[in-house]
Amino acid sequence: MQKRIKHFLHGIAVLLLIVSGIGSANAQSVFDLRFNEILVLNDSSTVDDYGQHSSWIEIYNSAYNSVNLGGCYLTDDLSNPTKFLIPKGNPKTVVPYNQFIVFYADSQPTKGIFHLNFNLRNAKTIALFDPSGTKKIDQLDIPQTQQVNITYGKKIESAQEWDFLALTTPGATNDPSPRITEGEKFVKMDPYGIGMTMIAMFVVFSALAILYIIYKNLGRFFIRRGVAASKPSSGETKTEPKQDEDGMSGEVNAAIAMALYLYQNETHDYENTVLTINKVSRNYSPWSSKIYTLRKLPR
């Protein structure tokens, strides 16, 4: 037992080591958030929830699940990474998959959780930090030649390059072209499904062929092990396998047994009673007690 506990503890220790080794991996988290579009000089473009023309910053969630920005920090000063704390515990800070969130850089944080305590007019850079305030999620160096009412952003969300955009799209994709689904793209290249058939059959065959190879070899291993186990050791005397008197194989016996079983099941009536040696418990209840259900004799 102690040996088992020891093994278990060793296993836990190894697991902890592995987990600590991959601690830096933060897939599907705040580390998938990206700056996507900003408007520095807003003179007559979009308005905020107070009807004001404020500068704004748009962040895009590139993860495959919702991400909560609550607890992260936005700043325009890399020496002060925790300049603006995005409040925790507010459902509005949750950014769904492939969606956007907009913060107004108007130096008026009392207006709400989406209003920052700095503006972009003189900002040279903006950055997003994780809840620890030490790990930078994304950073954007803002060109100083900003144009009035023209946004600066990525042409499509997956791109790396930034440029001035023809359309102002806070809270929406920067790519105005009609969306073509992956399936439509695929069919455009493969209108008769021949490519799909070839790829898919290859994948299905590969998956099952790997299983086949593994099980073929594993089967051989187990058969060999079974044969080795059945061989007598050198000290033992070899005994002849017991022959069936009628020379019938096990399969024939099994078939006869099965036939008898089926025959007996079919010829017997269905019995719904159970024969048991277990004690049948009949707990006392006054509701079922005989003395309360029988009428007493008049005296």
């Binding site: 099952l208 062929a209 086949y212």
Partner: peptide
């Protein structure tokens, strides 16, 4: 195991 391939 070769029966697996028929399933594919």
């Amino acid at each position: 195991p070769k029966l697996i391939l028929i399933g594919a």
